[in-house]
Amino acid sequence: MNTQKTVRQEAGTVEENSLRLDEEKAEQIVEALNADLADAYVLYHQLHKHHWNVEGAEFLDVHVFLQEVYEDVEDAADEVAERLQALGGVPHANMTTLAAHATVEPEDEDVYDIRTSLANDLEMMGDIIESYRQHVELAEGLGDYATGEMLREQLEVIEEHAHHIEHYLEDDSLVVESATR
């Protein structure tokens, strides 16, 4: 590892931005976006875990679905990080910092049945949805309509995924369990 360091901007700081958003307002939005970024990576890793461990009759459909969802979450995280950098902030970028700033709790390392796993994902998504709604209001209240719009678009995607998980968790299924005779 290179021992020579030139720090261009310290983590946790917000500098003047070319978007002409007041630094005090930008600080509030950067803090909210860093929480969204941390939450996204917690969700990303949990979804990835479930993608790796899914089993059963509907394995392939759920496996593919979970990959689509975690890829969307990763894309959203990248967009959030780039936006908060444009606002003059420093995106959280290491696992320790991300874990410390996340507002959602991941499930533990154990492997659960897919119904339990999806229920855990749905619960986390619900928490993130509520947070996004608050952050849309915060950004727009501070005059940052572009961040509000970005979060709205991401909110629509996560709500759609949550709705699909809700359908997976319904009782109706084409899979028939064999009757014990």
Rank of each mutant, 00 (worst) to 15 (best):
R8Q: 09
E15M: 13
V7D: 00
L19P: 03
A38R: 01
L33I: 01
A38C: 04
A32H: 00
H48A: 10
V69P: 08
V14R: 02
N34W: 02
E79N: 11
E27L: 13
V62G: 07
V90Y: 10
V30M: 01
E16K: 04
V7P: 07
Y44Q: 04
E16H: 03
N94M: 10
H63D: 04
V80L: 10
V62S: 07
L84Y: 02
D75T: 11
E31F: 00
T6A: 03
T6M: 07
Q28G: 04
E74L: 12
E79F: 01
F65N: 08
D72T: 13
K5N: 03
D72F: 10
Q9A: 06
P91F: 11
L66I: 03
V69G: 07
A57T: 11
E10G: 06
A76S: 13
A81E: 01
Q28K: 15
R8S: 13
V42N: 03
L66Q: 05
Y44F: 14
K5Q: 09
V62K: 15
E16Q: 06
H48R: 15
N94P: 02
E24I: 03
L19K: 07
A32K: 02
E16M: 02
L84W: 02
A40F: 01
E82I: 06
T13Y: 13
Y70K: 02
Y41L: 07
E55M: 13
A32L: 00
A86N: 10
H63N: 07
E82R: 08
V80T: 10
G89K: 05
E10N: 08
P91W: 09
E68G: 15
V30H: 01
E58K: 15
L60M: 12
A32S: 06
E24M: 06
E23V: 15
A26F: 06
D78R: 04
V54G: 11
Q28V: 01
T6P: 14
K49I: 08
K49W: 15
Y70V: 05
A57S: 13
H50P: 00
D72H: 13
A76E: 07
G12F: 11
D22Q: 13
E23W: 03
E58A: 14
Y70A: 06
G88A: 08
L33A: 01
F65L: 11
Y41T: 01
L87S: 09
L47C: 14
L37A: 02
D22R: 05
A26N: 05
Q28S: 12
K25R: 14
H48C: 06
H50I: 15
Q9V: 03
Y44L: 09
N17K: 04
D75H: 12
E71V: 14
H92F: 14
G56K: 09
Q85T: 15
H48P: 04
L43V: 08
G56V: 10
I29K: 01
Q46D: 13
V73L: 04
N53M: 06
L60W: 13
D39Y: 12
L87M: 05
L66V: 05
H48W: 12
E16T: 08
E55D: 12
I29V: 11
K25A: 14
H50W: 15
Q9D: 00
V54Q: 07
V69C: 12
K25I: 06
G56A: 11
V7A: 01
T13C: 05
D36T: 01
D61Q: 12
E68F: 10
A11N: 00
D61L: 09
Y70N: 04
E24V: 08
L33M: 05
